[in-house]
Amino acid sequence: MRAHAQLIFWAVLVAALALLPPVVGVLHEPFYVELVRRVMIFAIAAASLNLILGYGGLVSFGHAAYLGIGGYAVGILSFYGMNSGWLQWPVAIGASALVALAIGAVSIRASGMYFIMITLAFTQMLYYLGISIEEFGGDDGMRIKTRSQFSGLIDLADPVASYYLVLVLMFGTIYLVHRIARSRFGMVLRAAKSNEARSRAIGFSPYSYRLCAFTIAGALCGLAGALLANHTAYITPDFMHWTRSGEIMFMVILGGVASSAGPLLGALVLLVFETLLAGWTEHWQVILGPLLVLSVIFFRTGLAGIIPGAGDE
């Protein structure tokens, strides 16, 4: 019964997202393709954060760092005339993984508030690094003249083609995180989240598991960064601003921690609301803020917990 509802939920979700471009094409509203593509890129970032926050209990307040590293990897390589996506994207993912490994190696030894502050501090360092390097635009950021090239296989300047690429990568990421969480590796991660001392006393030191998950999450978010740079054709240090980290975290919490659909639902609701309210008043944050607070108070399990079939088993 439950499995049935889940199947319907995901089928509807995939169908709706896949049919969006032709539908809005008929309605002559191309803006929605841009909006949902952005939603899906952030859903990748949120899904990667969910791996460590939702399943691992690691409240990283610096996840936007990898969005920035992924974005700058594309931007900087493009600046030097290297436009091949085959080069840019692996560099974006690999660099993000390496930085995550380094940040994780230091921060995961700490716990609770200290972990949050250390991850935040590292990301602020990267943010100010982005501001200080004038060559890559400094504070103003830098335009990417040519989007990532994939040997003519796909043209990322075409909004619909890039939409479908993001769609596939997003569902791929969600599925990957789902599989990791249910693997034996994920079980240990979840066990350590619920009771760290107990998982030690049964023979597992959580550190290496957490560090591995942290690195995977960074790598996946680096992919989101590469996509975001191609989406906006522009990179700025704002990719790494701490409010961005907070936004990604909020998507996870609003959508439902430790659920597969949560990050996507959270990204969808947050960004759509943001866009709607911004079109209505420039003080949209005054309205969105209280709405978010209320949603957390009343939907403790997140959106995934109240939509039939969206929750995990």
């Binding site: 034996r184 079980m187 240990v188 979840r190 066990a191 989240k193 619920s194 009771n195 107990r198 998982s199 049964i202 023979g203 597992f204 430790a258």
Partner: peptide, 14 residues
């Protein structure tokens, strides 16, 4: 026991 793991997962995880 780990509340957020199923019975099977509690047994297999560690």
């Amino acid at each position: 026991i780990f509340p957020n793991l199923t019975v099977r997962e509690n047994l297999v995880a560690t």
